[in-house]
């Protein structure tokens, strides 16, 4: 069953008249992870934000987005707000800028959970504490009372994942969640994503330009270039029998880099 179906999504910048995403259609199966791959500016993030209906006011989107059979594009702003977080949850690229810099992390967590559940502060704290411990964050209560600049990018990323664990969304949209991290934090965060899927069985859209990460986590892949979907299919087919030249280029550069890496490591 498809939990999300996007049909003929076209996104236009009304200020410049430029089309950012051309007529794209794709779907996400229940419990699956769909990766969207492509270089910067290819329209990956805009596609994600279109699903959440969070593009800038001057960005216009047309087409249909069906979430559990309901057309998201026709919902009122109030109905949409209830879906955000509770049903459709997003994880951003840069944890450092994702939280209000002048408030402690706990403020955002409490405000989010209070918006969706009628929990008391005590309940929120217990639930967040459990979720934060499960993503390997030590001293959850202390962490919740810290400002974003006092925590590392990887920790903030894991806090976002912990929040998602408590929200239990139907679809999780992760917009380049590992790009701003160092390799060790990347590894930890990806581990958390894999566990998250196993634990909650939620469907996921995973945007990345790191094919290594994508290979580890995704079931299906979309390759985007200049606002168009140029390739789609399950992960092994796309990696082994890419039809589009651009996909082959992405895969080969990835191989080249890892071969080069192996060569260097072999020499040591």
């Amino acid at each position: 069953m498809n939990i999300l179906e996007v049909e003929n999504l076209q996104v236009t910048d009304m200020n410049t008249g430029q089309i950012i995403v051309y007529n794209s259609s794709f779907h996400l199966k229940q419990g699956n992870c769909l990766a969207i791959v492509g270089e910067s500016g290819s329209g990956k993030s805009v596609t994600c934000r279109s699903i959440m209906r969070l593009n800038k006011p001057w960005i216009h989107q047309s087409g249909d987005i069906f979430f559990k059979g309901e057309n998201v594009n026709h919902l009122s702003e109030k109905e949409m707000r209830k879906k955000r977080g509770k049903n459709l949850c997003m994880i951003l690229q840069n944890g450092m800028s994702a939280f209000d810099p002048s408030c402690v992390i706990g403020v955002h967590l409490r405000e989010t959970l209070a918006a969706h559940f009628g929990w008391s502060n005590q309940e929120i704290e217990t639930k967040m504490k459990k979720a934060m411990e499960s993503v390997m964050l030590k001293n959850p209560i202390e962490t919740m009372n810290k400002y974003p600049h006092q925590l590392s990018g990887g920790m903030l990323q894991r806090i976002m994942i912990a929040l998602a664990l408590v929200l239990e969304p139907d679809i999780m949209i992760a917009d380049e969640p590992t790009t701003a991290l160092d390799t060790i934090s990347q590894f930890e965060v990806i581990e958390q994503f894999i566990q998250l899927r196993e634990r909650m069985g939620c469907s996921m859209i995973f945007v990345s330009h790191d094919l290594g990460v994508v290979k580890k986590i995704a079931d299906d892949v979309l390759v985007m270039k200049d606002g168009k979907i140029v390739e789609r299919g399950d992960i092994s087919t796309v990696f082994s029998k890419a039809e589009h030249e651009y996909t082959r280029y992405l895969v080969s550069t990835r191989l080249e880099v890892s071969n080069h890496f192996r060569k260097i490591m072999g020499r040591v």
Binding site: R81, K83, G85, A98, D100, L163
Partner: peptide, 25 residues
């Protein structure tokens, strides 16, 4: 246009509260 506004919206935080955060900053 800051990320924290986008993330707060993506989490479904009421617009009134987001405005207070924007004001404060």
């Amino acid at each position: 246009n800051e990320d924290y506004v986008l993330y707060a919206r993506a989490c479904g935080v009421p617009e009134r509260k987001i405005t207070m955060h924007i004001l404060r900053n």
